[in-house]
């Protein structure tokens, strides 16, 4: 078990290093000059050259990548060129390990930008996750138990509607009616959990529901399918032949088997959402990772983009490892070695 986890982590780290090389090459040897971008709209060639030197863009791409990796391990000082730092000590910014770079556009380290965005995205994703898992499973179980009835058809039909509806429409409708017209919730503003837990939650309800509805619809349909599928298994028939009651039959025998594929999907979906829900964050103006990615993209803020890509990859890799380990706990037949 321990050896398995170590091996998976090592593979994950190797994967991340490859990932960083690919994104680095894609972004920094691409069509536009990163130094020109970083410098700003009106820049003389001399200024561009200066920026290039300060951020190390004058070096070969692989050297840049090497020092980027070094920065993740030990941290870096900006501007990168030592002579520039000595000439302008007031400009020096220290970027502690794991340093993901410096964004000239935001005049801030990428780490700092991510650090302020992460709690917002995490909050939305986690609250939405709770909503969609509870709702999705509940509706899925109800639909599977009443298969073929009007209730079942209603749940399947509604889930299709929510699945097809664009997230921003749902978000805007919720804002327009629930928040503005009916005033059930205030216009959502992010409040840190550490500052006020109850305000944190009430402000998250609308964005989380917006995000959760789409996933809830998908999970309701999937869990319905998986439950119906596993209720045809021989061991469910055995349990029925033993005289097990209807509800334990569903919960203990059928659902348990149907959960396995759902755990995999839930883990990976959550990991991706931790990296930001672009549309939801945009609709509610929550400055999380999703919105940061969009603004960085439109402002061609390459270092921030590289940082976000790496962070997201880390989430996905970690989620994969966790899901695989969870599997061994869910299914006793799975051995980790």
């Amino acid at each position: 078990m321990f050896a398995y986890i170590v091996r998976r982590v090592v593979i994950g780290v190797v994967l991340l290093i490859v990932m960083s090389l690919v994104t680095f090459l894609l972004f920094f040897s691409g069509a536009f000059d990163p130094a020109r971008n970083a410098c700003g709209k009106v820049c003389s060639p001399a200024q561009i050259e200066q920026t290039s030197k300060a951020l190390g863009y004058d070096k070969p791409i692989l050297t840049q990548w090497g020092s980027f990796l070094g920065g993740i391990a030990t941290g870096r000082d900006y501007p990168l060129d030592k002579s520039v730092r000595e000439a302008n000590p007031e400009l020096v910014t220290h970027c502690a390990a794991p340093c993901l770079g410096y964004s000239m556009v935001n005049t801030d380290t990428v780490n700092h930008l991510l650090k302020s965005a992460i709690p917002i995205s995490f909050s939305i994703a986690l609250v939405a996750f709770v909503f969609w898992i509870i709702g999705g499973l509940l509706f899925g179980i109800i639909a599977a138990m009443t298969k073929g009835s009007f209730l079942d058809r209603g749940i399947v039909g509604f889930s299709l509607i929510f699945y097809a509806f664009p997230t921003f429409v749902i978000g805007l409708l919720l804002l327009r009616f629930v928040a503005i017209r009916w005033g059930i919730f205030q216009l959502p503003v992010y409040v840190p959990l550490t500052q006020n837990p109850s305000l944190w939650f009430t402000n998250l309800v609308l964005p989380s529901i917006t995000l959760a509805l789409f996933y809830m619809a998908g999970y309701a349909r999937m869990s319905r399918t998986f439950i119906i599928e596993s209720s045809g298994e021989d061991y469910v028939r055995t349990a029925k032949a033993k005289g097990v009651k209807r509800v334990p039959l569903i919960l203990k025998h059928t659902l348990r088997a149907a959960l396995t594929p759902l755990v995999t999907m839930a883990g990976l979906d959550l990991a991706i959402l931790l990296g930001g829900a672009i549309i939801t964050e945009d609709v509610f103006s929550f400055h999380g990772l999703g919105l940061l990615a969009v603004t960085s993209n439109s402002r061609q803020d390459l270092p921030t983009l590289v940082g976000i890509v790496l962070l997201l990859s880390t989430f996905v890799i970690v989620a994969n490892i966790i899901v695989d380990i969870l599997y061994a706990f869910i299914d006793p037949r799975v051995r980790l070695d």
């Binding site: 028939r237 055995t238 005289g243 025998h253």
Partner: peptide, 18 residues
């Protein structure tokens, strides 16, 4: 299971793996 019980053909698939 009390008055009438049944044994099935394939005991591997007839028992819950979990």
């Amino acid at each position: 299971g009390k008055d009438v019980a049944m044994i099935f053909q394939d005991p591997l698939s007839a028992m819950h793996p979990y």
